[in-house]
Design a protein around this nucleic acid. Sequence first.
DNA 1: AGGCAATTGTGAATTAATTAACAAATTGTT
DNA 2: AACAATTTGTTAATTAATTCACAATTGCCT
Lengths: 210, 210
Amino acid sequence: MMVRKKIPEKSVERICRYREILLEYQSIGKEFIFSHELASEVRVSPAQVRRDLMYFHLKGVPQQGYRVSEFLYEIDDLIDPKEVQDVILIGVGNLGKAILSYFTHKRPKLSIVAAFDVDANKVDRVISGCECFHMRDLQKFTREREIKIAIITVPAQEAQAIANTLVESGIRGILNFSPVLLKVPADVYLECIDITTSLEKTVYFSRGRR
Amino acid sequence: MMVRKKIPEKSVERICRYREILLEYQSIGKEFIFSHELASEVRVSPAQVRRDLMYFHLKGVPQQGYRVSEFLYEIDDLIDPKEVQDVILIGVGNLGKAILSYFTHKRPKLSIVAAFDVDANKVDRVISGCECFHMRDLQKFTREREIKIAIITVPAQEAQAIANTLVESGIRGILNFSPVLLKVPADVYLECIDITTSLEKTVYFSRGRR
DNA sequence: AGGCAATTGTGAATTAATTAACAAATTGTT
DNA sequence: AACAATTTGTTAATTAATTCACAATTGCCT
């Protein structure tokens, strides 16, 4: 079987954004898209778009561009898991709820199947369309359902302990929103969204403009 | 007056993370830190840390490392605005609330001074420690207080319109959490946090590991 | 059908980011 | 007071990411 070239993070990120735009195009009935159209939507160069396209084999035609449906098919094939991926979320605070309601049915291949919290008001209820369990069942659930992906939205102090539990239970990837630089083994993929850093960056780069 | 070298985004990001660790060190009373300690905390190479340090002039001493307090001072001096920056947040849903409560007194130089929403239950109340006004006052407030930074946490459909209003009112930087690729003039800094893309990335890179 | 204009696909060139490497400096030790 | 062991600061080397540039296509127009 042929091994697909490994795709760098940056490209995967851009490809996900392309999909967003392509879905929009599809929804308004446009059948074709040019590299420069996609590029201007995503704020990259047309050359960059075409370069990213080399990771999969999409044939565009000069004067016409790429067929949107075909483009989307290729992205799905490249990026999406083959089977539906079950994801869990830990920490049903404001942030957790935002993510839950946000993700419901966003992508057919991604499904947040359970949320966990310690708060009795949340446990055993459906919150933002997702069933919420007590934290004490986290490990059991993760193991039995063989969950590979988790989203952490708990306060800073608890984050590392939860990450540890998850790793122990066989998690392969963590999307972390808690304001802590988690430590996980090198073979567990860790994506961190650090809101403070983002704001600080915004402030920094906003100065010295005009 | 000497012009400070322009610092690339990646370095600013790392420097913000360094600060996080340094504050931790400070809080547990450690006076010095080595480049390799900081590096392992932030998951970069020691050489990278030292390289980043070249953007400001911090003298470390062999065998001892960098003085934490001095290090923090230099970061503040480099990254933080000289005066307190007033920031506003638009969209007091779950995500907005999460950010509000999260940021209160997080950084002395950054202050979310107002939030905006259309919901009558939120307007004219203090939510997560922040005063909430009606959306219709957004432009007036932004102009009068000369707000330069805004955080957008509204649903997708409204995001672009709000961005337009903000730009018109003189905003210089936007931190956008709404799932839309906003269009703003090139001289307005735009930082986007795209939760969907992050999750998709996590899923993608979690496969093919063990 | 032939020519014009636009757009793709991809090596080559460029620029940016990271790592390697090592002299200079400093501390503690004998 | 010389030595050994570290760790810094920085230049050079390497690797990664982006842009350039242009031949090869294709559609459209006359």
